[in-house]
Design a protein around this nucleic acid. Structure first.
Lengths: 210, 210
DNA sequence: CGTCAATCCCTTGTATGCACGAGAAGCAGA
DNA sequence: TCTGCTTCTCGTGCATACAAGGGATTGACG
């Protein structure tokens, strides 16, 4: 693989795992020495991280790890809810047999993971949502929704550690699946909206000053 | 302004205006000579255009102007409809007096432009939709919706030349505004959904083999 | 004559050096 | 001491040079 891609993954991992804290300056020279490459691939990696929203690049003023204010996070979760709402509405119409099977399988995997632990559950949870996006039959939507979901992933985990809502989440999944498989577009849409939007509300609770 | 940004704008303009056709290869060296700069800012500009979806960058295999198949376009319009649906639903709840005034003004500008010509109308149309996004009270959604709207702009104009739907479009705007100002989230959402989704359908008509 | 493989060329990826601008630090005047 | 200006430093933007991989071309073999 090219250096810029491995670099991107490494830096991304470092940010998500907290090695670089929000607001911290990322100097090209330092990173280059740290990873044993020149500034060129570092620059490209940072631009790619900018695309995904992890860092902020300011003209001639360097790159910093982006700090998302609680308000921004709420906004992003709100958009996430909108995308999922759209995806399941489309899915009730366009879903194939394969899509149905994938959703069912992912849902069952969540059921199993529920009793193992939160990390296991949230791993399967990602797969479940991915299956929903795919079932929309709209690859563009699928890609955008996946990107946003991934961007929000660390905050979902954060939430999780504060509020144990694994079993509640799973019940919400059940409601979504039931309505979806029954062809109830209205019900499925509302169920998934609530499932995602509640996370935005939780953030308002975690950061009341947001 | 930095060279990479001016370059980005120039290349973008060249693509949107058809100077570079879809599928055409964009060689860094050629562009660099053409615009009198080195390859470095050209590379950066191309990456930025990749973000916005205008070009496709393949590892070690060069950059080409992206060709959106009719199916992809339909998918993008579908997502656009979803975002506008969300924006309007949120707007019925969060809209401020300023938002309301901006929407009203943009709508009136559309009414005037309707009788002038299609180009004038579609210019004001952009402002109208922009006002809707803003009224959602969600800057993140506003930004994403604006980006997608801009990306679809050339195809909207293409459509326009084939099917004269200015007056129809304006009537749809009236339905949206009426429901929105009445606080009817359901009605406003449906109205805006139909307004945008009909464009996807029109594409299916224009390119029946999509 | 068609097919496969080795080679070569050209484009992209990476490294390095120079130029320019932003922000810090130092200085002068009030 | 504080404020405003000047200078200086260091990091980013850009240019150029080198490395490496992909695809075309050409030649050999079936």
């Amino acid at each position: 693989m090219s250096k810029k891609n491995t670099l991107r993954d490494q830096i991304e991992e470092a940010i998500l795992s907290g090695k670089f804290s929000p607001g911290e300056r990322l100097e090209e020279k330092v990173l280059a020495e740290q990873y044993g490459v020149s500034r060129t691939p570092v620059r490209e990696a940072l631009r790619q991280l900018h695309e995904t929203g992890l860092v902020e690049v300011r003209e001639r003023r360097g790159t910093v790890v982006r700090e998302n204010s609680p308000t921004e996070l709420v906004n992003m979760f709100e958009m996430m809810a909108g995308l999922e709402f759209l995806a399941v509405r489309l899915a009730t119409r366009h879903m194939t047999e394969d899509d149905r099977a994938r959703i069912q399988a992912a849902h069952e995997a969540c059921r199993t993971a529920r009793d193992i632990g939160t990390d296991a559950y949230y791993y399967e949870n990602e797969a479940f949502h991915q299956a929903l996006y795919r079932a929309s039959g709209n690859p563009f939507l699928e890609q955008q929704a996946t990107a946003l979901h991934r961007r929000l992933q660390p905050y979902r985990r954060l939430q999780l550690r504060s509020i144990n809502r694994v079993s509640q989440s799973f019940e919400e999944h059940e409601a979504i699946v039931a309505a979806l498989f029954a062809g109830d577009a209205e019900g499925a849409g509302n169920a998934v909206w609530n499932h995602v939007a509640i996370q935005a509300d939780n953030f308002r609770v975690l950061f009341p000053n947001g």
